[in-house]
Design a binder for these strands. Structure first.
Lengths: 194, 194
DNA sequence: AGGCGAAACGGACTGTGGTCCGCTTTCATT
DNA sequence: AATGAAAGCGGACCACAGTCCGTTTCGCCT
């Protein structure tokens, strides 16, 4: 006669102190980054500020990069929400082509804003299958709505690739392009593909 | 009355011992990687095997990643040579479209072969402007020969982006695509753009 | 309430990337 | 060949990511 049937609750019984520490660590990390920048963030400092031991950082996030990725995940979820249920043309309601172009613009801006954090998250972020999967699935859906023929799974990832942080770094910070130029180029690319 | 006018010799007077140590370190690194893999390579071990102090590693290469990048550079130069003066269709002599498709296939294979080293080189590699510049310039030239209109500088980088190591990792190692499938998808992408 | 097993905690410890500075080597000049 | 100064060298040293294990906390069950 258990009060809560474990299988009915989605959460897999996370202990209360674990959840509390997790939040404390994320908050501490965000505050320290705001103050000192991403590069000077040490795991010792995060643990101290959160009032927990260093081991807890690694128990919860696996690595320094994992901590960065978790911070990113929060902002990424907000972004995904604006794609799923936000206002058109990024959200639903606009014609597919408009949505696709709005997607590119928004993704580019998002990546530029989070660039340093994404780079600090390193491969941990690249392996975040949930994020990559959502993005390419969304593009794939729009391509299908546009009636594009061919290997849509490939085309979706190929269209998303030029919006990645390293490419943008090269084009904008190294190659002297402006964000507008990059966006115009991407829009042109999309129109050729469709 | 100097024997050698410094301005006439291209080399900026690299001291003999410096050059010798540089080669010794590169050889030691390559041997240790072959034996133990990239991940288990420590700078201490490289220095010891090369018979030099650890400081020398960092004087010559700046960082562990810089050492990896230098190893890559060697193989990259060989690859570039095969593009500039190797046999067609990768090298000159074939029609532009054939060359472009051969470029994609060769670049994909090259990236797959060097993937672990490229990942170990991290941002140092991504900032290697010479490599990025050569690749996108080559594609840009082929696009021009094909009579493509538009922002060729952008299109070149956008076509190269889906051949990057992280994208290939996602598609092939995570997403279940085969190399053939990726290559076919890329060729399709190119044909749509042209 | 109280007891029990599992999960989480914390902080000392380790391994490695990267720095620093006094000493050595090179080489152009005489 | 001698010389002097600049370039290079080496290895002790430091900071920080990540591990390990004895101790503490949680929450379920009687």
């Amino acid at each position: 006669m258990s009060k809560n049937l474990p299988l009915l609750t989605a959460a897999p019984a996370v202990r209360a102190d674990a959840a509390r520490n997790r939040e404390a660590l994320l908050r501490a990390a965000a505050e320290l980054i705001e103050r000192c920048g991403v590069d000077d963030l040490t795991t010792d400092a995060v643990a101290a500020r959160a009032g927990v031991g260093k081991g807890t950082v690694f128990r919860r996030f696996g690595s320094r990069e994992g901590l960065m990725a978790s911070l990113l995940n929060h902002r990424e979820e907000e972004w995904q929400a604006s794609v799923i249920s936000g206002p058109a043309p990024l959200g639903p309601g606009a014609p597919p082509m408009e949505r696709l172009l709005a997607f590119g613009a928004s993704r580019l801006r998002h990546h530029r804003e989070q660039a340093t954090l994404i780079e600090a998250a390193g491969s941990t972020w690249g392996e975040n299958y949930a994020v990559l999967g959502f993005v390419s699935l969304h593009v794939r859906m729009l391509l299908a709505q546009l009636g594009v023929q061919g290997d849509l799974a490939y085309l979706a990832t190929a269209l998303v690739a030029p919006l990645g942080v390293p490419v943008l770094r090269q084009q904008i910070d190294h190659g002297g392009m402006s964000e507008e130029q990059v966006l115009a180029g991407w829009a042109d690319l999309v129109r050729r593909v469709v």
